[in-house]
Computed example of a mutant assay.
Amino acid sequence: MYLLAGTTAGLLGCLFATAFLLNAAVPSITVQMMRLAPQAPAMMGALNMAAFNIANALGAVGGAKVIAAGWWLRAPILAGLGLTCMALLILCLAFRRLIRV
């Protein structure tokens, strides 16, 4: 995405692909999260949506910070990559803990 963001067509293509993949992934993530709490699926769904909102806000703040720091306009892509890697690390650590319980 970073390499294609230099052109308008590449940026629009990446935007479409990202939106498509996110809309395809969210329902399956929600179902998997609800399986972790069969006694309270509505609560787990609400927590899942809250987590998405927090991630969206953190991504917006991270993107704004790198632009305000004077980096180039494609830098939010790298900031998003860094935030995604941190989230995946947290997921891996939490998943190990969930498996033990």
Rank of each mutant, 00 (worst) to 15 (best):
M49L: 15
L47W: 12
V31Q: 03
A87K: 03
A57H: 04
L47D: 01
I90R: 08
A17L: 15
V66H: 02
L22R: 09
M44W: 05
A37M: 11
A42W: 07
M49E: 08
A17E: 04
A55M: 10
W72D: 12
K65P: 10
F95W: 15
R97I: 06
M34Y: 03
L81C: 08
M44L: 06
W72L: 10
N23A: 13
A57L: 15
A87E: 03
M43E: 03
A60L: 07
C92V: 10
I90V: 15
L93A: 08
A94G: 10
G80F: 06
A75I: 04
F95A: 14
F16M: 15
L88D: 02
T8Y: 15
A25G: 01
P27W: 09
T30F: 15
A60Q: 00
I99L: 13
A40N: 12
A25E: 02
A24M: 13
V31G: 00
P38C: 08
L36A: 04
A17V: 12
I54R: 02
L12E: 08
F16V: 13
C92A: 12
P41K: 09
A60W: 00
L98T: 08
M1D: 11
T7P: 13
A46E: 00
R35K: 15
A87F: 01
L98C: 11
L11G: 07
G70K: 11
I67Q: 06
C14A: 14
A17I: 06
M1Q: 10
G45V: 13
V101A: 05
L22V: 14
A17F: 01
I99D: 05
G80C: 12
G70Q: 10
L3A: 11
L12N: 06
A79E: 00
P76D: 02
G82T: 04
T84A: 12
C14L: 13
P27C: 03
L36Q: 09
L83K: 02
S28N: 08
P38N: 07
M86C: 13
I54P: 09
A25P: 01
N48D: 04
M44N: 00
N56E: 02
T8A: 15
T30L: 15
L88H: 02
M43F: 10
A9D: 05
G59F: 02
M43S: 05
A24P: 00
R96D: 12
W72I: 01
M49P: 03
N53Y: 14
A19T: 04
L91Y: 12
L12H: 10
R97K: 14
L21S: 12
C85K: 09
R74W: 05
L93C: 11
R96C: 09
T30A: 15
A64Q: 06
A55L: 04
T30H: 11
P27D: 03
G45K: 07
G70M: 09
Y2K: 01
L93K: 11
L83C: 04
R100V: 15
G59M: 06
V61G: 01
A79I: 00
A69F: 01
V101C: 10
L47Y: 09
W71L: 14
A37R: 13
F20I: 12
A50N: 06
I90E: 05
L73W: 09
L83G: 03
A94N: 12
M43H: 04
R97G: 06
L89T: 08
A37E: 04
A55W: 03
L93H: 06
A24E: 02
F20E: 02
V61A: 05
T30M: 15
G6I: 04
W72P: 00
